[in-house]
Design a protein around this nucleic acid. Structure first.
Lengths: 114, 114
DNA sequence: ATAATATTTCGAAATGTATCGAAATATATG
DNA sequence: CATATATTTCGATACATTTCGAAATATTAT
């Protein structure tokens, strides 16, 4: 993860709406947004379902669509078009990379001219 | 760290100027911004010194002053007035808390209604 | 082909944020 | 007290972002 990607991920996570989306996708334990199918596979929610959970709207709004794509280009979530729906999945590794980078900075070990 | 503090820290870290300040304060290894005195104590830089390192200016600017206080109210750095200078120190624990919280979210273990 | 559904794109309005210079404040020094 | 130094506050401007509604696109179903 280069520095540009790191900053774009931090920026993406800094918006409350986008953080809600991330938490919605992360909360598989609620069995509400991300579910497990009969074969043990993960069924991720559609953009519309994420929007319902996050905003209470009945269908996806342009605002949520925009935020989803911003999270997507930061690599925090993956967007996959399937038929007429768009499936949204969290990319946990992206978050773990951000966490690790922040840890390194806290320890004065970030990549600088040292 | 409550959720409001978490978000304000994320937001604070998302700005490149503020991230430069944080990295400047974290890079004790460079012996440039944070130094060790004869008695083994840490000597943190003044706001002006941070500003010089980050922007190349010869004295502190209002912009950097503003960013320092934003980082301060997010608890990421500590500001201590000493005489006519303001001493800036990183609060590594604040960063570590942010990192840990992001890790928890990545694992779907954030504090929600589960 | 038409209609229905899900999403994206576009343009505009509203809001928020960063930046800058000047003035104000606070502290130390001569 | 007057001056110099370090920082903050203020007000304005520029810029970026969020949000919204309408129109456009894409896909499936009838």
């Amino acid at each position: 993860m280069n520095n540009e990607m790191f900053m774009s991920r931090l920026r993406a996570l800094g918006d409350p709406t986008r953080m809600s989306i991330v938490e919605c996708l992360a909360s598989a334990c609620c069995g509400r947004s991300t579910e497990i199918d009969d074969h043990g596979g993960v069924i991720s929610p559609t953009a519309g379902e994420v929007c319902c959970t996050v905003t209470g709207a009945t269908k996806i709004t342009s605002t949520i669509s925009h935020h989803l794509h911003e999270l997507g280009s930061a690599g925090i979530i993956a967007l996959e078009r399937r038929g007429r729906t768009t499936i949204c999945t969290l990319v946990p590794d992206a978050l773990l990379e951000v966490a690790e980078q922040i840890r390194l900075i806290a320890q004065g070990k970030e990549n600088n001219e040292c």
